[in-house]
Design a protein around this nucleic acid. Structure first.
Length: 358
DNA sequence: AAAACTACCAACCGCGCGTGT
DNA sequence: GACACGCGCGGTTGGTAGTTT
């Protein structure tokens, strides 16, 4: 069944850029009569345009509530977060950004954000680090790595977040009270007794934050994997580091996001199929940024909340070298991270605490 | 100064969905 | 159930401004 075109071809209707006179006619008509029935509107308004063209012109340009100008960092941050959840649902994203149109957001994504993510070694579709660049194919081939495999096979887009990497290495029933053993190496086991040392090594470094009771544990995972199978992609490992902010700053966010009991998520399967599309994430200061070194994966576990009784729900960055909020850094400041070539995360400790599978 | 290149974004296009007949 | 219609969505295109060579 074919659809009839919204306006006949070659019937004298004008196309292309709108003139100010046309704009004024459309505005005048809508101000007097309101919009609706776009098919008949142009005729009534005296416009030689098809209804679709009028609707687009109005919704994307002439609407009085449209915000003009550059996207703020906060808006950019929101777009990235929402895109990680909703994918290319531009209208859904636009509905959470007052004054911005889906078209504008889509353009901004394609011309700015997408390129930046690619440069960071992040897949803009899945929002995951580009694991293919780490040459983990053999890692995935193991039948014993089912949990990891399942994660990668998920139909829903993965949210770019450090918890994913946690899950990669922490899927067993093993428990480690890391908060009480801060001097012990963080060495999450692999299910079915595949030693993690097969893939690399974790090394911890616990540091006290100056003028505070808080500790920051920096865990570095070093893998001997070299992307020798990707000789032509070496440019993708340029030492570019950009900040990024994830959207989980408390357990309830997880529950909202995954749509079921987070306590049992590892038992129920990683239930992203129950993702709530209308979930609106909260902005947080749960930060991480990606580097692009294919040999080192640096994992920073910020456990200051466990150590500070007067903890805030929005922990402040403790280490300016390791936390960088996207919305608060200038381009120049971002460039200063280029010397860093590691993958570096900060995970709020209460998230770690809440997930007993660690 | 001019050509070539790049970035940006308004506008177009085709498709799918919901609704009414 | 089949079809027509109205509308909205996401992908793509093409014009233009800015920058580089």
């Amino acid at each position: 069944m074919g659809r009839t075109p919204c306006c006949e071809k070659n019937n004298g209707l004008k196309k292309g850029p709108w003139t100010t006179e046309e704009d004024q006619k459309l505005i005048d008509y809508i101000q007097k009569h309101g919009y609706g029935n776009w098919r008949t509107l142009p005729k009534n308004a005296g416009l030689q345009r098809c209804g679709k063209s009028c609707r687009l012109r109005w919704t994307n340009y002439l609407r009085p509530d449209i915000k003009r100008g550059r996207f703020s960092f906060e808006e950019e941050e929101t777009i990235i977060q929402l895109h990680s959840i909703l994918g290319n649902k531009w209208s859904a994203i636009a509905s959470r950004l007052p004054g911005r149109t889906d078209n504008e957001i889509k353009n901004y994504w394609n011309t700015h954000i997408r390129k930046r993510l690619l440069r960071m070694g992040i897949d803009p579709v899945t929002h995951s680090p580009r694991l293919d660049l780490l040459d983990l194919s053999s890692f995935l081939c193991s039948s014993q790595m089912n949990n990891f495999q399942n994660l990668l096979n998920m139909q829903q887009p993965l949210v770019m977040n450090p918890e994913l990497l946690k899950l990669l290495f922490a899927t067993s029933s093993h428990q480690q009270d890391y908060s009480n053993n801060q001097n012990q190496p963080f060495n999450p086991p692999i299910q079915n007794q595949i030693p993690l040392s097969n893939f690399g090594q974790f090394q911890d470094q616990v540091q006290q934050v100056p003028n505070s009771n808080a500790n920051v544990c920096t865990t570095t995972f070093t893998t001997p994997c070299v992307s020798s199978s990707l000789p032509n992609e070496s440019h993708l490992f340029e030492p570019k580091v950009e900040p990024y902010t994830s959207n989980f700053n408390d357990l309830s966010n997880y529950q909202q996001y995954f749509g079921h009991d987070i306590e049992n998520w590892h038992e129920n399967g990683f239930g992203l199929s129950t993702l709530k599309e209308d979930y609106v994430p909260q902005l947080s200061s749960h930060n991480y940024y990606y580097g692009s070194d294919n040999q080192n994966l640096m994992y920073q576990n910020s456990n200051q909340i466990l150590s500070t009784p007067s903890s805030s729900t929005t922990p402040t960055p403790l280490n300016s070298n390791s936390t960088c909020i996207l919305g608060s850094n200038t381009e120049d400041e971002r460039e200063s991270y280029e010397s860093c070539n590691r993958l570096n995360f900060e995970i709020p400790a209460h998230i770690l605490e809440a997930n007993d599978f660690m």
